[in-house]
């Protein structure tokens, strides 16, 4: 629409100028040559308008936003689920603090209220657990909550028996994730148990 108008203006401009230039203008070539500038301007206006529109449309695309949210949730959840399966007996306080940082709600309350005695117990067990998310997928998603499933490998090294081989366990987890204060946090984390019907 806009461009049509611009081009029309340019045409009018030329048609009015040409007869006039024959009569009066001392530099006819330069004068009539001015038209291409307006054609260029018209084309540039078209490019600018369409480019801005395309940018605006793409950046406002809901599907694209959802896709980005999905990837952000998954990335965060993978890290956080690994954190939840990690604890070093030498750094129990730091480990518990890390759990608190990636969780929210009741789960967070439970984890941060781990008593001194329990912490002592964890330290005395002399275990180093390291969680690794082997694979994960978003199952459900909206703007502020998501469900993620994750296949987790937990390696446990028993420091009381330094010569022993670490044991490796495979676990299946399902996590409900919610966005709190601009960060995705784990609200519930459950093992997916076998239940054949």
């Amino acid at each position: 629409m806009m461009t049509d108008e611009v081009e029309k203006v340019t045409d009018d401009d030329e048609s009015q100028q040409r007869p006039a230039s024959r009569r009066k203008d001392p530099e006819p070539r330069q004068r009539s040559g001015g038209g291409w500038r307006f054609v260029l301007l018209g084309v540039a206006l078209l490019v600018a308008a369409s480019g801005s529109f395309a940018w605006w449309q793409t950046s406002g695309d809901e599907d694209r936003k959802t896709a980005e949210t999905r990837d952000a949730v998954l990335l965060q959840a993978r890290q956080d689920i690994a954190t939840m399966n990690t604890l070093d007996y030498r750094k129990v306080d730091a480990g518990v603090k890390a759990w608190g940082a990636v969780t929210t709600g009741t789960l967070r309350d439970q984890l941060t209220q781990v008593s001194k005695e329990d912490r002592q117990l964890l330290a005395e067990q002399k275990k180093i657990s390291t969680g690794r998310v082997v694979d994960a997928s978003v199952v459900d998603l909206d703007a502020s909550s998501a469900t993620v499933i994750a296949a987790v490998e937990v390696t446990v090294q028993d420091a009381a028996k330094p010569d022993s081989e670490p044991t490796v366990k495979r676990n299946r987890f399902s996590a409900d994730i919610v966005k709190v204060g601009g960060r995705w946090r784990i609200e519930t984390l459950q093992q997916v148990a076998v239940s054949l019907s």
Binding site: L41, A44, L45, V47, A48, S50, G51, F53, D61, L141
Partner: peptide, 26 residues
């Protein structure tokens, strides 16, 4: 105007080509 327009197209195509947008899961 040309710079603005080409930048707009570039950004639009760049956003569409992103891995996230290409994946239809969920």
């Amino acid at each position: 105007l040309l710079v603005v327009g080409l930048l707009g197209w570039y950004m639009s195509i760049d956003l569409q080509r992103s891995e996230a947008a290409d994946n239809g899961a969920v």
